[in-house]
């Protein structure tokens, strides 16, 4: 555990909690892609199946349980409790175009051809693109609530901090995981355009809106 890894995890946790609180307090999931949230629930479920097979630390177990619990709570709020506020017409990204290729890639490129390892690999690949329905929705409506942009910033920052963590681990522990690194770079790059808008607009007190 190093400082980048810890702040990355906390940034991830902050993102998840910001989104849950935003929906809960406003009693609305307007502007939130339910599809992205379903993909994140799938990501956590397929990655953390090792909760059942191996114990690493109290920290590791509790974070995994919190991430999974929050992911399902978010999906529940969007599709059940506040379903009436869900903006399904604008959430029109075709997720099968992500899930199917990612599933194929996980079967072809992995560390070990075993059930849990392929699911872990699938979750890493899927996470790298799971935000696309949300970004697509924002590009379609041309705007995002400020609280939603804070969520996206924390979520993007988390993987960027993990990249620094992997550089650290490469130098100080001679450890690297090529699958996680390549997927993590892809994931971070997808946020770059958003990071630019966040810094130039939201941090200066303006609402994030895209030119028509």
């Amino acid at each position: 555990m190093n400082v980048f890894r810890l702040t990355g995890d906390l940034s991830h946790l902050a993102a998840i909690i910001i989104l849950l609180l935003k929906i809960w307090k406003s009693r609305s999931c307007a502007g939130i892609s339910g599809k992205s949230q379903i993909l994140f629930a799938i990501v956590f479920t397929t990655r953390y199946l090792d909760l059942l097979t191996s114990f690493i630390s109290i920290y590791n177990t509790s974070m995994k349980v919190i991430y999974i619990g929050c992911a399902y709570a978010t999906v529940y709020l969007i599709y059940m409790k506040f379903r009436a506020t869900y903006d399904g017409n604008h959430d029109s990204f075709r997720v099968e175009f992500l899930v199917v290729p990612v599933g194929g890639l996980a079967v072809l490129v992995n560390h070990d051809f075993s059930f849990l390892e392929i699911l872990w690999t699938f979750s890493i690949y899927l996470e790298s693109v799971a935000i696309l329905p949300q970004l697509f929705m924002i590009s379609k409506t041309g705007e995002a609530e400020t609280i939603t942009t804070h969520y996206l910033f924390c979520l993007g920052l988390y993987r960027a901090l993990y990249l620094l963590n992997w550089i650290w681990r490469f130098y100080f522990e001679s450890f690297f995981d090529m699958i996680a690194i390549v997927a993590g770079v892809v994931q971070t790059v997808l946020y770059c355009d958003f990071f630019y808008l966040y810094i130039t607009k939201v941090l200066k007190g303006k609402k994030l809106s895209l030119p028509a």
Partner: peptide, 10 residues
């Protein structure tokens, strides 16, 4: 093992 190592991360 290397495989066990990456499982430490979230």
């Amino acid at each position: 093992s290397e495989e066990a190592k990456h499982k430490d991360e979230l």
